[in-house]
Structure formats: structure tokens, C-alpha cells
Design a protein around this nucleic acid. Structure first.
Lengths: 129, 129
DNA sequence: ATAGTAAACGCAACTGTGTTGCAAATCCAT
DNA sequence: ATGGATTTGCAACACAGTTGCGTTTACTAT
């Protein structure tokens, strides 16, 4: 995937992107570190840099939830300007809701320009209900 | 307002709530500190605690934006479970959009329960266009 | 294959937000 | 006014994320 776009390949990028692709939730850097610790041990900084890079290149997207921690998720629909996420109020898990459509007219003030829309639904996930 | 609800009054709570009520944006603790520095100087911790308290008591609400900083805003419509915010991608200003209605069915997974909905529109504000 | 170069990595040190423990100050009911 | 609970300020801390820099790695040109 990465080579196909003519980008530089490193083992970090491969493992991290593969892990994110296999995961349907948005995950924190801790979760990534933990899941990859047998395969490859990364410095925290490297992890952040790889994730930023993946984000910049459009392979993943990044979101911040109520605990103020970045979470990352592989992009399924590229170039999508709409994201919807569910945050569990109890276990803080974040799930991406891929299929949503919004009414687009949310009374923006005069002169304001919308570029991206993010919808966050907070509640309880199936395990925490 | 605070007394009316039978809650304890302190000068911090008064000044901070008054400031938030007079402001139509969601503001960071820095902005609050700056705006109040002639009237009253607070310790950072006190500010956070007052803001948490105001949030718990439902006088204000709290949101985290892309810079991972809490922002606070006085509640206009109490008990509202829907918030909409606009974030400027250039100046990171946050404005609350009070009038929005959502289509309510965002395909939550089986067993998930929605309790709060937050819509964030990212783009450029009038000054940054 | 090999050498050279640009990019990526690891380490250490740093920044900034937000939190905790505790003693001193303040609020408010009596 | 006074006593007891609540708030405040200070110092120290926790943790996510960042920066600088010297070393290593990936790719390119030979």
C-alpha cells in the first residue's frame, strides 16, 4: 500500500499501518505499543512520528476524545471529509461509525467556511450498558 | 444565579461564571486568566477546580478541540444533550453553534446507547478566510 | 554490489495541560 | 462573632506529545 503510493518504506510504518488496518476501533499510542511489543519495539517518539506521517499522507486519521489523547484509525474511505465516532462514557473506547449522513446546513455564522465535519456520539457501548 | 441554586458562593465562581456568560465563544483557561487578571488573580489549580465545579453543576460545559485543550462555555440552554461547535483550522478559535438539529439515526452498533451528541465543524472563520 | 545522500530512528531533555496532597484562608449557618 | 466544612494557593507530580541531535536505515546513482 505504501510502496504503491511511492512513499518510503520502513518496518515501523508497515507494522503500525497493518495493525491499524486490522483494527476497527480508533486506538491510542499505548494500545499500539502494547499490541506490537512482540513484533517490534518502538520508541515513543518514533511511534508518534510514524503516526503523524501516516496521518499526513492520508493513510490514517487522528481524533482527540474526552481524555485528551490522540487516537488513530486507518482510513477506509479516503478523502472523506466527514467522520463520525462513538465514545463510550464508561470505558472511553472509541468506535468509528462509518455510515452517517448529515444535513449540511448547520447555521454557520456569516463568512464562515466549513471544511470538515465531525460528529461524536457519546453514550454507553454494548459491554458497558 | 449560583445562590439561586443553593450553591456556595466564592469570588472566583462569580467572576469566572460572569466572564463566561459575557463571552459567546468557548474559551481556554488561559483566556480566562488573561481576561480576569485585573479583577482577580487565580491560581491555575483554582481556576481548573472552579471550572470543573461549574461544569459538574451544569452552569457551563467543557469541550476538547484539536489542540487538546479544554475550553469552557456557559450553558444557555440547560439540559441540552446536543452541542455543535465550530473550530477554526487557522486560529484555533472555537465558536458554539447553538441552533442545530441532527438527523437522529447515525447507525449505532447493536446494543449501543447514545446519551450525548456533539457535532464539530472544522473550517475557517470569517477573519481567517 | 557499493557508496553516497536524504530520510527515519532512538535517546535525552523539554513543554504544557491538567491533577493531587496538604496547610492556610474563606464561606456561611448558627 | 464563632465553629466546621469548603475553597484556595502552593509545591510537587503525572502524562501526552515535541524538539534537537547524533546514529542508523532506506533508497538511488554509479
Amino acid at each position: 500500500m505504501i510502496r504503491h503510493r511511492g512513499e518510503r518504506i520502513t518496518s515501523g510504518r508497515i507494522h503500525i499501518l497493518a495493525m491499524l488496518l486490522s483494527e476497527r476501533r480508533a486506538v491510542t499510542h499505548h494500545e499500539i505499543e502494547k499490541r506490537l511489543k512482540d513484533k517490534h519495539r518502538f520508541d515513543r517518539v518514533t511511534l508518534y512520528r510514524v503516526l503523524d506521517w501516516l496521518n499526513e499522507k492520508g493513510f490514517v486519521h487522528r481524533l482527540v476524545s474526552a481524555d485528551r489523547v490522540w487516537r488513530f484509525r486507518a482510513n477506509i474511505h479516503e478523502h472523506s471529509q466527514q467522520h463520525a465516532h462513538f465514545e463510550c462514557l464508561r470505558c472511553t473506547k472509541v468506535v468509528c461509525l462509518d455510515d452517517f449522513e448529515t444535513a449540511h446546513d448547520f447555521g454557520l455564522p456569516e463568512g464562515y467556511r466549513s471544511r470538515e465535519v465531525e460528529l461524536t456520539v457519546k453514550g454507553l457501548c454494548a459491554e458497558c450498558v
